[in-house]
Amino acid sequence: MRDLVTEHRLNIVLALILLGGPLIAHFADEPFLVTLATRATILALAGVGLNIALGLGGLVSFGHAAFFGLGGYAVGILASHHQTYEPLMTWPFTVNGSNQMLVLWLVAVLVSGLAALVIGALSLRTSGVYFIMITLAFAQMLFFFAISWPAYGGEDGLSIYVRNAFPGVNTLRPLDFFLLCYGVLMLVLLAQWRMTGARFGIALQAVRQNEGRVAALGLSPYRIKLAAFVISGMVTGLAGALYVDLNRFVSPSMMSWHLSGEIMVFIILGGVARLFGPVVGACLFVLFEHVFGSFTEHWQFFLGAALLGVVLFARGGFIGLVAGRARHD
């Protein structure tokens, strides 16, 4: 049990660092750093989503940018309608835009969850490299659809000018918005932690390790994987919603395959299937981008080197390096 305790403690330390850093930056009057931490937090959430499918379920989705983008567009479209006072549709009933984050998040989660249900239902009939390719293909379809749909900016994207509202929070202040995103991330991590040890999480991890055995026990691996894929898509979609409010802008690049790859990189850097793996990975990613990006535009060279190092010498990622091998009961 010693390893587990270490990982648990490590997670608490990591959570405190992610909270403390921006607080210090705020009081040192460095709002840019707060925004940077917010970016890392939101990207981490996108990674947490993928980690449920990839880490716990072994489902290597190379199309999670689709859910990130769909969550983003859900927010962008509704917010732009709210700003122009034009209803989204008037028949058979009127749907107005909104600037309430709680409403927008709900829509983003539902839209990305529905998309994950459809994409997952089809993709999960395949496995291995075919699954990777078919998820990529679906994401690319949505990417090109977003580019070619002029109503919401097409290739140029869509600006929402003003950050949406959350009851009791001044979302325009960088620290407030950071704390909101941080709260969402922590809540999702808490839920994932509970889920991992509950019946669904156990069944999902069993499917990853020995699908045939699970089927022989009379549980349907397909249904378990599909549910995991939908949950995974929903979380990444929620991250997309936050990302649009961070940038006040949504564009097809949120759905590009580069982004799918980056989300996967967070997980590999931090530690596959580890609760805080994507959090560490996303923070390292943003850190690399900021530090090395300040003196060379080829900063991804250093990211690549780090990734290579992890894959060759530390298969468990950062968390595995510090806390050792994961334990299950």
């Binding site: 839920a191 509970r194 889920m195 040890g197 509950a198 019946r199 669904f200 999480g201 156990i202 069944a203 699970v214 026990l217 009379g218 549980l219 249904r223 378990i224 549910a227 009961d329």
Partner: peptide
């Protein structure tokens, strides 16, 4: 767990 056909538990720890 399989005998109980119980998969969709998300909170209670096994």
């Amino acid at each position: 767990q399989a005998r109980h056909r119980s998969v969709f538990g998300f909170v209670r720890q096994v």
